[in-house]
Amino acid sequence: MKKSILHSDHRQELLDRVAELQAGDQAHWGSMRVEEMLAHAREVAAAVLKSPKPEKKANIKQLLGKYYFFYFKKEFPKLVKGPKRFDMKGKVSQDEFLEEKQGLIDALQAFGGISHQLQGFHPFFGPLNHQEWGILVWKHTDHHLRQFGV
C-alpha cells in the first residue's frame, strides 16, 4: 500500500516527524529555512483540502508524468520548483517557527476529518482523484521532512 495522508497510521508518522523539528534546523538540500518549509507544506496541504473540482482534462504529458510519479517514483525529486504561490522564501520570520509548526500539524490533522472527496487540478499531473491527492500530500510532506533530516 502506498503511503497516504488519508491513512491514519501514515498521517501519524508524518505528525511524529514534524514534532521532531526544532527551530534553527538546517536543510540538507535547497535554500528554505525550517519555518519557510513548514509554511510551504502547510499552504500546500490547505490548498489541497479546499481545491475545486477540475474543469480541464489532463494532456498526454500530464498523464505520463502522473503514471510515472504514482506508480514508479518512490520520492519527490530534490530541488523541484513548485508554483510561485507556494514559495515562502523570505516571507516567514524565524520567530514564527512554533506558529508554522502548529499550522502544519493542524493542516495534516485536518485530513483525518474530511467528509468530502479530494479533487482538483495539479499543474504538473492534471486532475487528481481522492486517493492520488492523499498519496501526493504524503509524498510532498515526506520530501520536506527528509530535507530537514526527520
Rank of each mutant, 00 (worst) to 15 (best):
L6A: 09
H40E: 10
E99Q: 14
L98T: 12
W133I: 08
H122K: 05
P127D: 06
N59T: 10
S93K: 06
K91Y: 06
P127K: 02
L104S: 01
A23R: 12
W138Q: 01
P52T: 09
K84R: 14
V18K: 04
H28A: 12
H140R: 02
K56F: 07
P54S: 13
D9V: 12
S51I: 00
E100G: 00
F72K: 13
K101P: 05
R85N: 06
A58P: 03
Y71D: 05
Y67I: 03
L38A: 05
K101G: 11
F97M: 08
D95K: 14
A39R: 11
H7D: 13
P123W: 13
G103W: 00
H10W: 13
M32Q: 07
K74T: 13
I135N: 03
K89V: 02
N59Q: 08
Q102M: 09
L6V: 08
K53N: 11
V44C: 04
F86Q: 02
W133T: 03
D16F: 00
F76C: 10
P123N: 09
E75A: 12
L104P: 00
K91D: 04
E20T: 05
L145I: 08
A110I: 05
W138K: 03
A19C: 04
F121Q: 10
Q22D: 02
W138C: 02
D87C: 08
P123T: 07
K57I: 02
L6H: 07
K73R: 15
Q94A: 15
F121V: 00
A27C: 06
K53E: 15
F76K: 02
K91Q: 14
L104Q: 02
F70Y: 05
L104G: 00
K78I: 09
S31D: 14
E13G: 12
G82V: 05
F76H: 11
K74Q: 13
Q117G: 01
S8E: 14
L49M: 12
E96G: 00
F111C: 10
L104E: 00
D25M: 03
E20H: 01
F125D: 01
Y68W: 11
D95Y: 05
K61V: 15
Q131L: 07
L64S: 11
P77K: 13
L38V: 03
F124C: 03
A58G: 10
H10Y: 12
W133A: 04
V48R: 04
L63N: 11
G112I: 04
F69L: 13
L15P: 08
L64H: 01
R11M: 07
H144W: 04
F70I: 08
N129F: 03
Q94S: 15
G90Y: 04
V34F: 05
Y68Q: 09
T141D: 10
P83E: 14
N59E: 11
V137C: 06
Q26S: 14
G126D: 03
K61T: 12
L128H: 03
H28N: 13
